[in-house]
Measured scan of single mutants.
Amino acid sequence: TFVALYDYESRTETDLSFKKGERLQIVNNTEGDWWLAHSLTTGQTGYIPSNYVAP
């Protein structure tokens, strides 16, 4: 799992909003700078900017 370093507000319907400190499970990280992730807090799935999270 990864932890959010910053808050992120989604800009498209495929993005995932999250708050700093939220735990995220990475589903697919082969898309370059945008990873498909599942929030362990909200249960939602969407794309996140990879530079906003850390292991």
Rank of each mutant, 00 (worst) to 15 (best):
L16R: 02
L40S: 05
T14G: 15
G46Y: 01
L16S: 03
G43F: 07
S10V: 04
S10R: 10
D33M: 12
E13V: 09
T14Q: 13
Y8S: 02
S50G: 08
A54Y: 10
E9L: 10
W34R: 14
W34I: 10
T30H: 12
F2P: 00
T14L: 12
V3N: 03
W35Y: 08
V27H: 08
R11Y: 10
I48F: 03
L40A: 07
L40C: 08
L5E: 04
N51G: 12
E9H: 10
L24N: 00
N29A: 14
F2M: 09
D33Y: 15
T14E: 11
Y6I: 07
Y8A: 01
P49H: 08
W35T: 04
I26P: 07
E22K: 00
E9D: 12
K19W: 05
N28T: 10
T45Y: 11
W35Q: 04
E22T: 04
H38P: 00
T30A: 13
E31P: 12
P55I: 11
L16W: 03
L40R: 04
R11E: 13
Q25T: 12
F2E: 01
T45P: 01
E13G: 12
S17R: 05
Q44H: 11
V27L: 15
S17N: 07
S39V: 03
T45A: 07
A37R: 00
T12A: 13
H38K: 15
T45H: 07
L36R: 04
Q44E: 10
Q25G: 05
T12G: 14
L5H: 03
Q25Y: 15
E31G: 14
T45G: 05
E13N: 13
T45D: 06
F2T: 04
T42S: 12
L16Q: 03
G43V: 02
R11M: 13
G32A: 14
G46C: 01
L16E: 00
D33E: 13
W34G: 04
Q25R: 11
S50R: 11
S10T: 06
Y8W: 10
E31V: 12
G21Y: 06
Y52I: 06
D7G: 05
T45W: 13
W34P: 06
W34T: 08
V27A: 07
K19V: 10
G21W: 05
K20D: 03
A37E: 00
A4S: 05
G46E: 00
L16I: 12
K20V: 09
N29R: 13
F18R: 00
W35A: 04
V53W: 04
G21H: 05
S50L: 04
T30Y: 10
A37N: 00
